[in-house]
């Protein structure tokens, strides 16, 4: 297999850094906020000033992290539970379910290195099941960060929510998304309105690929709607169904297993509302067993603009 060309990563802050900076700003202002760390290294060099006592590094103990966060929340605090997405959603999932979701407590799970953003660190550090695991939990809000600007807005909006939130953050700086209407938590952002096919994308590279595909498709006479769906739960089924009602065919794109994730959520919702075909692009059903950058691994798995174009042309014209 020949290696696809991989562009150099951009310099904007990664979504985990955007989140960290917002939390750093928030801590001294809100007495309720507690930052629980698990030896992540994300807060190295951060000065919380008068709020330093509310930064607690418990060490490498993710299960305890989620239990402790729930206890703090029950006592009126707003804990931010920091770990990698892989450990939040698989290792600590029972504590998330029973202690946090069941009690509907305002814990913010800040899950970094999501998707394949851990790249060469390998399958133990990839989190391709987290959307599936988190979105099925009652009370949980699931927010997927993309570029720096939308992450900034989403993290600030998530702070106001009364219940638990899963913040799916990336490890790497990513290019900016195309400009669009304001990012509103719970609503799909309509980046482009078309008539022939709906491309609903979740996460930075999926949205960028969707955009690139839409431009290419327009040259081929196919007019695509592009939706940036950052909130997977609650899912904005109204916007999705409205778009699908116009275009018919929907293509979902995500950095997650094809099974159980964003595309599955879209398919579940639309199948009850209208007769449209939903194609899901995502990571195929096998563990990644090679090294590579985030972009390389997505390309290799076929989560690309080319694959979207291919799907769109074959289903719209075929």
């Amino acid at each position: 297999m020949s290696a696809p060309a991989v562009p150099a990563p951009p310099k904007a802050p990664s979504s985990r850094e955007v989140y960290r900076d917002i939390l750093t700003e928030l801590m001294p202002r809100d007495e309720r906020v507690v930052c629980l760390d698990t030896d992540t290294g994300l807060f190295g060099g951060v000065d919380f000033g008068p709020a330093a006592g509310r930064y607690v590094n418990i060490g490498i103990a993710e299960h305890t992290l989620m239990g402790a966060a729930a206890g703090l929340a029950k006592q009126g605090r707003v804990p931010f539970a920091n770990t990698m997405a892989a450990f939040a959603s698989s290792r600590a999932i029972e504590a998330v379910k029973i202690n946090i979701a069941y009690n509907d407590l305002p814990v913010r799970i800040a899950a970094t290195h999501s998707g394949v953003s851990a790249g060469h660190l390998g399958a133990t550090h990839h989190s391709l099941e987290d959307i599936a695991a988190m979105r099925v939990l009652p009370n949980m809000t699931v927010v997927v960060a993309a570029d720096a600007a939308s992450t900034d807005s989403l993290v600030r909006q998530a702070l106001a929510l009364p219940g638990p939130v899963y913040l799916r953050l990336g490890r790497n700086a990513v290019p900016d998304l195309p400009a669009g209407p304001p990012v509103v938590l719970g609503q799909a952002q309509v980046l482009r309105q078309g008539t022939d096919v709906t491309i609903a994308a979740c996460g930075a590279y999926p949205v960028l690929s969707a955009w690139e595909a839409a431009e290419e498709l327009s040259g081929l006479g196919i007019d695509a709607t592009v939706l940036h769906v950052h909130t997977v739960k609650p899912l904005d089924t109204a916007t999705l169904a409205a778009a699908a009602g116009i275009t018919g065919t929907v293509i979902t794109v995500e950095e997650h297993w094809r099974a159980g994730g964003f595309g599955a959520a879209v398919a579940e919702a639309l199948t009850e509302l209208l007769p449209v075909r939903v194609h899901r692009l995502g990571m195929p059903d096998r563990f990644v067993s090679v090294s590579g950058s985030q972009r390389y691994l997505l390309d290799r798995a076929g989560v690309t603009a080319a694959a979207i174009v291919e799907r769109a042309t074959s289903s719209v014209k075929g």
Partner: peptide
């Protein structure tokens, strides 16, 4: 020398390949 290269089985964490 392949460690960390695109497509190499030598990922940072032990790979059974």
């Amino acid at each position: 020398a392949e460690y960390g290269e695109h497509g190499s089985p030598l990922m940072a964490h032990p790979n059974t390949e």
